[in-house]
Design a protein around this nucleic acid. Sequence first.
DNA 1: ATCCGTGCAAAGTATTTGCAACCTA
DNA 2: TAGGTTGCAAATACTTTGCACGGAT
Lengths: 157, 157
Amino acid sequence: MEENTVKLKEQLKEKGYKLTTQRQVILDVMIEHQGQHLSTDEVYSLVKEKHPEIGLATVYRTLLLLDELGIVHKLDLDDEFSRYELNTDTKDHRHHHLICMRCGSVIGMEEDLLDELEQQIRDKYNFLVTDHRVKFYGICQKCRGVENTGASVKRTL
Amino acid sequence: MEENTVKLKEQLKEKGYKLTTQRQVILDVMIEHQGQHLSTDEVYSLVKEKHPEIGLATVYRTLLLLDELGIVHKLDLDDEFSRYELNTDTKDHRHHHLICMRCGSVIGMEEDLLDELEQQIRDKYNFLVTDHRVKFYGICQKCRGVENTGASVKRTL
DNA sequence: ATCCGTGCAAAGTATTTGCAACCTA
DNA sequence: TAGGTTGCAAATACTTTGCACGGAT
């Protein structure tokens, strides 16, 4: 059984919750699309391909639950919906996102590299950082190559 | 006349827009609450104290406009509404926010300190960073002093 | 058998928009 | 005077919730 499924099963049991088909299916979709940043509606569509009887409200409720359990992460990519990605971080620190302003692609970067900065914040502000959320906006590798081709700006999240 | 008001007037004229009483009043409110992170509804309430006839839609439209002009910055503080603060940054780089998980206060830190990290992103990912958005979560100075006093967690944004 | 979980539809809520009247430049 | 701007209300659109039925333990 997949690692995240085991994790889900354990955590659900621990809290007296049940592992239902719906929860299993929704987690499967997230696993199959690891690295992507799916909106609730996109998850719903993918879920319906396998189990058309599953309702949108269940997807909302389950994604919320998975986020609480730390199995997925909710994120804000500046559009009008909530998006989720499978949690691949180890500590309580999240990885960062590079958002291309030209083509809209979103790249996840594994490195944290903020430890030093957080130490400075601790020293100067006496503020103890336990987590952070970082988004970088700019121009991605691909778009730096093709300058002004008038290419589509449709975002692929 | 206040610096930001001059800036507003110039930028509006440049684009063929008009400086109305409503826009003036809304900017005044933002200036009077510099450093705070007001929701649209909070701005609306403050505006109504001076000019009860101004409508909510106008506040929405004006805040959107001021954000486009770079006079205010829209920000996301993880609650259900858009928040705005007067822009005090010089470059196109925004300052960071320290969010206390215990008392909910939000501190703006002037320092950027991300130049080195952005250079690393450029080297490794060939991604040219032009802007960023950074939030740090943790425990603020005040709350680190009073450990577990059971104090209110109501957020003061 | 218990009671958590689900599907559906209705409700909720922040935000946007159409439009006639208004007012700035 | 002309056209951008406003206020109001209606419309949007994502998300949440009430409730009776269904299913996992």
